[in-house]
Write a protein that binds this DNA or RNA. Structure first.
Length: 491
RNA sequence: GCCCCCAUCGUCUAGAGGCCCAGGACGGCACCCUUUCACGGUGUAGACAGGGGUUCGAAUCCCCUUGGGGGCACCA
């Protein structure tokens, strides 16, 4: 009786997906792929009031960007369509009716106000808050009276008053709860929509989900779900609850922690493969040393047995390091292609668009190993397009140098460069290094002055390569600009 | 308040009784490479929350304390 592995990602469109949600999606996806099973996306849009416009698209976009493809779900359909819960309401009503008919559920006429007061009262008396089962044993006459008052009831599960519910979580092991601590949860709301609990159980059953992989926040409602499976006569799936991802303040990661949404990481210049790799390591590990995994390796090695139970703090520094690793491993052409959108939007508008791709192909290899995120690229290469002469002219004067020696250095360099026939690295090397000796400067001093003159910065890619890409004319003109600035005493 | 759960360097983690005076990675620091920065290399500081057991032997098993997380909605 080896059922095919079927996992699902069941987001609710109440906001944009953040890395915590996506980590859950990733693990469910990896588990399905590892076992040759199916990955299903199901939209849990049962909270009409909280639904956010565009959230479904944002969720799907994030999944697509990361390459987490789904076998069934929105846009692709599938055998168990539809994959939006708002389109499956009959199913939930049917289930609720069946439960009522069997005496496993009942109508509750309590008003939200009464429930609220009740809860406040309970908290005040240091009692655990929970429904007091006021309507659990209403007679037909009482029900009829309430109906005629025009109250639309909700449906609640008749939770067993005693006994315990236990299950074996694939990650947490044996978990058990006293039924007496579980109150009668609402299954069907008065607006006709099901609660998460009902919809989730019905759909996971209907869609033949074999493994429910979800966040730890669901662990304590799992017994309720199990009770529901039981009452409905369904064979429950296996459960695996993933540890929480925390923000730097140790609270559950949320919007408050800055860039928590996947879209924002994308905008910040992180590569999907880096984010995926990083996320995979939040709660899972292969061994004591492997850190960088391709998607294939991840699929091949992933297992729930190696998922741990401790909540993890999202460590952006490490993500950035990892992103740098991935960036450096890109082919030069790939790096160009990935940088392009960031350059189009990040480079100053006065630079002609579309950007000269061949020029970029010369420039970008010079900064590839120096970037951690793609958003840094425009600033790193801006000077290749624009002469930035707003640097402090003192920065032309290196350590142990004077204004005069800097002028002399630039002047001599300019003279030598003018006559240089071949403008390549070897020529520059054999021209400028001896020049330093001649000027009684350390190579670093001469190169530093030239670097500022040519790039406008003290930190830049290697000087000779930069000069070659810029070309002789632009180098000479920038040196002249620098000389002019040095000669003007105002600085 | 009640229920459930967790606990190794600042952070992510390896460790399933002796291989551990605890290994790797990010970050920190130092040095090397070097025309700046970065990359790379080398080294270094840095943890088994505390207390009791069990055992010849405990980071690993049990109990308590402490700390932390999650849940307790007509939200998911």
């Amino acid at each position: 009786m080896t059922n095919p592995v079927r996992t699902r990602f069941a987001p609710s469109p109440t906001g944009y997906p953040h890395v915590g949600n996506i980590r859950t999606a990733l693990f469910a996806w990896l588990f399905a792929r590892h076992n040759g099973g199916s990955f299903i996306v199901r939209i849990e849009d049962t909270d009409v009031a909280r639904t956010v416009e565009g959230a479904v698209e944002a969720i799907l976009d994030s999944l697509r960007w990361l390459g987490l493809d789904w076998d069934e779900g929105p846009e692709v359909g599938g055998k168990y369509a539809p994959y939006f819960q708002s389109q499956r309401l009959e199913l939930y009503h049917e289930a609720a009716q069946r439960l009522i008919a069997h005496g496993d559920a009942y109508y509750c006429y309590c008003s939200p106000e009464r429930l609220k007061e009740m809860r406040e009262e309970q908290v005040k008396h240091k009692q655990p808050p929970g429904y007091d089962r006021c309507c659990r044993d209403l007679g037909e006459l009482e029900q009829a009276a309430k109906e005629s008052d025009g109250i639309t009831p909700v449906v609640r599960l008749k939770t067993p008053l005693e006994g315990q519910t236990r299950f074996n979580d694939l990650i947490w092991g044996d978990v058990k709860f006293e039924n007496s601590t579980i109150d009668d949860l609402v299954l069907l709301k008065s607006d006709g929509y099901p609660t998460y609990h009902l919809a989730n159980v019905v759909d996971d059953y209907e869609m033949k989900i074999s493994h429910v992989i979800r966040g730890e926040e669901w662990l304590s409602s799992t017994p309720r779900h199990l009770l529901l499976y039981q009452a409905l006569g369904y064979e429950p799936p296996q459960f695996a609850h993933l540890p929480t991802i925390l923000g730097p303040d140790r609270a559950k990661l949320s919007k408050r922690h800055g860039a928590a949404s996947v879209a924002e990481y994308r905008e910040q210049g992180y590569l999907p493969e880096a984010l995926l790799n990083f996320l995979a390591l939040l709660g899972w590990s292969l061994d004591d040393k492997t850190e960088i995994f391709s998607l294939e390796e991840l699929i091949k090695n992933f297992s729930l047995e190696r998922v741990n139970k401790t909540a993890a703090i999202f460590n952006q520094d490490k993500l950035s390091w990892m992103n740098g690793m991935y960036l450096r491993n890109l082919t030069p052409e790939d790096f160009v292609q990935r940088s392009l959108p960031f350059l189009e939007s990040g480079l100053p508008p006065q630079i002609k668009r579309p950007l000269d791709i061949n020029y970029l192909r010369q420039i970008l290899p010079l900064v590839q190993e120096r970037t951690k995120t793609l958003t840094e690229v425009p600033d790193l290469i801006k000077f290749f397009f624009i002469e930035e002469s707003d640097y402090p002219s003192d920065s032309l004067i290196g350590k142990g140098m004077t204004r005069e020696s800097a002028i002399k250095a630039l002047e001599s360099a300019r003279l030598k460069l003018v006559d240089l026939a071949v403008f390549d690295e070897a020529s520059l090397e054999s021209l400028l290094r001896p020049l330093a000796v001649e000027l009684e400067l350390k190579p670093g001093q001469l190169f530093g002055t030239l670097r500022v003159a040519i790039t406008g910065r003290t930190v830049a890619p290697p000087l000779f390569q930069t000069m070659i890409v810029l070309g002789k004319e632009r180098c000479l003109s920038r040196i002249e600009t620098a000389l002019a600035r040095l000669r003007k005493p105002s600085g």
